[in-house]
């Protein structure tokens, strides 16, 4: 509840108390005004001489008094109506101002959001470009990878071949060495059997 709402509620309570008998006051006031007008008119009639011509003028005065009273009442009612209309206009003007302020705020928000959308679109475009570049790089890397994998395979095969050749060579060398050793052993045994021991 805003302070305006609270104040409005308090004014409502005030008016309920202070205007509780307003209708009777209004009725009494109307009677009072009529009485005053009638008394004035009566006094005017009484003051005039009793000739028929002047009396008729006095009666005319009474009618004029009544008309004046009626016009005054009408004027008061019109002023009250005008006040009500003016308050309504002021209230609506305030509402218009508030809506205009709100519209202005929303327009600013829309402009801000539009700018943000444009920025985000540009950002997305930039990101798309970056993604394309990355895709190209990935593709190129994959090709490079494939080439390198192939090369690795070739080198692995070559390596295996070389190892095999090396093992074969080592094996051949070992076998030859064994053969030579056996031969040397056999020769030494045969020499040992023909000569003196300890030579």
């Amino acid at each position: 509840m805003t302070w305006e709402d609270r104040l409005d509620a308090q004014l409502e309570v005030r008016d309920q108390l202070e205007k509780a008998d307003s209708q009777y006051f209004s009725a009494f006031n109307e009677l009072l005004e009529r009485t005053i007008a009638a008394e004035k008119a009566l006094a005017a009639v009484k003051q005039t001489p009793s000739s028929s011509e002047v009396r008729s003028s006095g009666i005319k005065d009474v009618v004029v008094h009544e008309e004046l009273l009626s016009l005054q009442q009408e004027n008061s009612q019109l002023v009250a109506k005008l006040n009500d209309s003016s308050f309504e206009i002021q209230s609506k003007n305030a509402r218009i101002r508030s809506l205009e302020a709100s519209e202005q705020k929303l327009s600013k928000n829309i402009d801000f959001l539009k700018k943000r959308v444009t920025d985000m679109r540009n950002e997305v475009q930039e990101k798309n470009k970056s993604i394309e570049i990355i895709n190209d790089e990935i593709l190129s890397s994959q090709i490079q990878n494939n080439v390198l994998a192939k090369k690795v395979d070739e080198l692995s095969q070559e390596n295996e071949g070389l190892i095999k050749r090396w093992i074969d060579k080592v094996r051949a060398d070992a076998e030859r060495m064994n053969e030579v050793n056996e031969l040397l052993e056999a020769k030494s045994r045969s020499n040992g059997a023909g000569s003196e021991p300890g030579v």
């Binding site: 409005d8 008016d15 205007k19 009500d84 308050f87």
Partner: peptide
Amino acid sequence: MEISKKLWDGTIPL
């Protein structure tokens, strides 16, 4: 604006 109207239209009984 309702407040302004109530303030202007306020009456006291005498």
